[in-house]
Design a protein around this nucleic acid. Structure first.
Lengths: 336, 336
DNA sequence: TCGCTGCCTGTTAGCGGTCACACTCGGATT
DNA sequence: AATCCGAGTGTGACCGCTAACAGGCAGCGA
């Protein structure tokens, strides 16, 4: 308890070298004699020496930590992204510090960013899927490496994003291909870029197929909202295909349809988005669109690291294409 | 870019005081004249000064960071816990650094713990729900504040845990109260303490009710496993009540029963565990047991902070009682 | 008048690393 | 033989902060 952990000088003394040589060994500096290196390593092992990252951070001005700003890390998407980010960062020797935020407004975001900056993080990843985050981000200090994920496509910031429109197009097209006249869309909250992108893709697919564009059914991300919308859709006999902005919405829709005696996929086909692990066990198994969170995490980190290493340069934008996962919730429309 | 951020001495110079006085103001030291305090605060604001946590960590030997060791932060339970932990920590001025680990074996755990120790974290929270983590934990350095969550109840370590047995008892009793002769149990993986606790509670409830104890149906946490077990249960005409170790398993069971034409709750009642947000929108809405992740997080942090502040003392164990959430998946058994 | 006590403030010495530089020394070059 | 070179190592000065101690200066009792 009372004994402080060993420092570099302790290792140096034991190995009979200077602290600087220990530092060189630790950092893989080339000009160290093999024999010396071994002596130092032995001393390190013997003392159980562990370099103090705080000291290192102090002198270099940057710690080997990446700060993340996220909103609701309980949702499947953000949670997966966070996990992937942590995994990827660890592989490059970085730790990840999360800062959750209740609302993505200017005050909350900059408070968390401030906290990260106080720790002298090497870079910051902001998962900023809504409108209100945008303005906050522009006022942030410009001299810290920063990448936004799922942020505003129209803002000139380094951005990694899932190609929402492409996913939505694929989902819609899949339904059209099955023979449906048109496809209804239950969308996510209007201030999310994800929602906007999916709406856009859905419209595009319908337009280019020359299909009629039904009115949008707005919702949030919850199963509850899906249920409410589903109750409405169930009453409309001409609805044969529904694309929901995520799987939870689809779950709510499925139950509403079930309660109204409308069979899926015989009477109505449903496609979701996200491919949550349980989607394959919905009733019926849900056809959905799977974003590649691992790829998003890798791209984000890559962009961040290039910013960290060189002052400028690197791509400003990376888009990750999602894939359609076909299951049993889609079938041709019923014959009249 | 080239200008380094302002340090304490810069603030001191601008305010016409010594850096030590700035430090006193920052740390709320009492003996500072009001007028001086204001001058310093003005200087801080003017320069946009931000204290360097790394420097502070270096001199105090501890950073205001709490390290978390977790396994699969994509699952609903761990994700919720992590989010709650982060929230609670932030309120006490601590940042949270996550270290995910693929397997909870000795090597993986101590690697992550080492990483945290290198950062001189103030304390560590280990979410260690499986057997294999136990031995790893005992070999860890004893001088760092550490709390385990959902860990081994039989090991003498500071532990916060959900009262799995109580939850399982409540679920089972609820089914018995509805009139069922006995209750079947689809359990989680056998090396998880959560599983063990739930099995125990289930057995207790049956025993004290004098009910027959059916064979255990072992599974993992996935909907897929639930589906497989459900297919089996669906073929057994005398099964009228099933308690699954989590909601995802229940989802799989529900689908299997549905496919076999067995109605829930008319033919078979089902109860889950976790109360995932979508549980209310399963077909039918799922009766389940809700653990209070917020309470777990608060208890963990409280225990950790007492360890951090005083060398010894504080409770070694805190148990959080879950609550039963009744929905529509439970009904009396069908008449013969 | 002289201490003695609190308040308020400044001075100095680290914390444990990295960086820039200086030094030694054997071998190759001139 | 004198010079240069580069590989290997050591020295000292910081990085930005806190802790410990050392004053200065008012008020107060002796």
């Amino acid at each position: 308890m009372a004994v402080r952990d060993p420092a570099m000088t302790d290792v140096a003394r034991l190995a009979g070298v200077s602290h600087q040589t220990v530092s060189r060994v630790l950092n893989g500096h080339p000009n160290v004699r093999e024999q010396t290196r071994l002596r130092v390593q032995a001393a390190i092992a013997e003392l159980g020496y562990r370099p103090n990252r705080a000291a290192r951070a102090l002198v270099t001005g940057r710690s080997q930590v990446i700060g993340v700003v996220a909103q609701n890390t309980t949702l499947y998407g953000p949670a997966s992204l966070l996990a992937a980010l942590e995994q990827t960062a660890a592989e490059s020797g970085f730790a990840v510090s999360v800062g959750s935020v209740r609302d993505l407004d200017h005050r909350s975001i900059s408070a968390v960013v401030e906290r990260h900056l106080a720790h002298r993080v090497a870079g910051i990843v902001v998962i900023a899927p809504v409108e209100s985050a945008g303005e906050a981000l522009e006022r942030l200090p410009k001299d810290v490496p920063l990448v936004t994920v799922d942020g505003d496509p129209h803002r000139p910031m380094p951005l990694v994003t899932v190609d929402q429109a492409a996913g939505a197009r694929a989902a819609t097209q899949h339904l059209l291909d099955a023979g449906h006249r048109t496809v209804w869309h239950v969308s996510g909250p209007s201030d999310w870029f994800d929602s906007a992108g999916r709406i856009e893709g859905w419209r595009e697919a319908l337009t280019s197929a020359g299909a009629e564009i039904p009115p949008l059914v707005p919702a949030d991300w919850s199963a509850a909202a899906g249920y409410r919308c589903g109750q409405m859709l169930a009453r409309m006999p001409d609805v044969t295909a529904v694309f929901t902005a995520n799987d939870h919405l689809a779950l709510g829709v499925l139950r509403a349809l079930h309660e109204h005696g409308r069979r899926v996929p015989d009477d109505i086909s449903v496609v979701g988005f996200d491919d949550v692990p349980e989607a394959a066990y919905f009733i019926p198994p849900l056809t959905t669109v799977r974003p590649d969170f691992g790829a998003v995490a890798r791209a984000s980190l890559e962009m961040l690291l290039t910013q960290i290493e060189s002052v400028s340069g690197g791509a400003l934008r990376r888009t990750i294409a999602p894939t359609l996962v076909a299951r049993r919730s889609v079938a041709p429309p019923p014959r009249r």
